[in-house]
Nucleic acid binder design. Structure first.
Lengths: 108, 108
DNA sequence: ATTGTTAATCGCAAATATACGATGATTATT
DNA sequence: AATAATCATCGTATATTTGCGATTAACAAT
């Protein structure tokens, strides 16, 4: 991909955050985590209509995007939202929308 | 996919918006559109490090997600941000983040 | 009618994403 | 040590995404 060479870091970061949000399961996970203080993988698997392996994959995706982090509490693993990046995501998303919107509404 | 059966419409909508934002090229396009009032496909192709066919595809993705709309002005096509959905996206994204964040910061 | 301009679409290849069962790793309890 | 519990990872299948050259479609201007 040429991406690496060309788009700004800011743009790529925003795209990475957005991509992580780009699946219903991951949205649900984040919604859940935002409401609970702590929660284990098992809790998430239970509320999710997906196999454990699949949920684990989504958790990995969110972790790699930096949106959540997990700590092992044997034999469980607890996850929570990564505050710092959560706020970062919020901020740069906001910047995108703050740019405003064109005045002329198109029809199609 | 089971998605259709299970996740709420709100969740799926948010995921669809986010997915559309999940590529640097599409972020750039939206950034550009947010600043210009009108712009033609050609303008976007010029500022983008991608082939015309590829840019056209990204425009299609954004259009299908409802984030932009285009009007033919032969022989050109002008695009602009879809105000209504733009605000909708902004709103439901905001809801996600407004849920807050867990208090206990994890280490890993 | 022919030509030129613009942009979508087609067809293809390569890469990624999604989902799941099965297996493996870790650790507490017995 | 053996067992049970929890969760990540592997392997696999299928679907989607990304990118591009080539072609097509739509229309203006000659």
């Amino acid at each position: 991909m040429k991406d690496t060479l060309i788009f700004s870091e800011e743009t790529k970061l925003l795209a990475r955050f957005a991509k992580a949000l780009g699946h219903p399961a991951r949205i649900e996970i984040l919604n859940y985590l935002a409401k609970q203080n702590t929660c284990f993988t098992g809790d998430i698997v239970e509320i999710m209509p997906l196999a454990q392996a699949t949920v684990s994959q989504h958790l990995k995706a969110l972790k790699e995007a930096g949106l959540i982090c997990g700590t092992v509490q044997p034999p469980k693993v607890s996850y929570c939202i990564d505050q710092q990046n959560w706020i970062k995501a919020q901020t740069i998303l906001w910047q995108l929308f703050e740019n405003g919107c064109c005045k002329n509404q198109c029809t199609s």
